[in-house]
Amino acid sequence: MRRAALGLALALTLPTAAAAQAPLVAQGCLGCHGASGAGSAAIPGLSGRPAAELAAAMRAFAANERPGTIMGRIARGYTEAEITALAAHFAALPAGGSR
């Protein structure tokens, strides 16, 4: 329910292409951050965290302003629209994941 409502809000507020792409672009994150974005052992979870926090983290990684091991190399590959869409996607998932 909550996810559907936020998904609708997302579709209304984001550029259409990026919004439609969000679930697919987010798939790349799941290989490490848990099949539901809930995290996995040493790798932190993404789901349920505020979109602004997630997007800010990605931008900081991309700009080498946040220490990390591999996220800087990753973040620089994504567009601003994708980062916004990714952040909104994981923010809309319940913390701990749903799947």
Binding site: S40, A41, A42, I43
Partner: peptide, 11 residues
Amino acid sequence: YADAWYASITA
């Protein structure tokens, strides 16, 4: 992270 990756991707 490699260990966590393996758990994530196999799930």
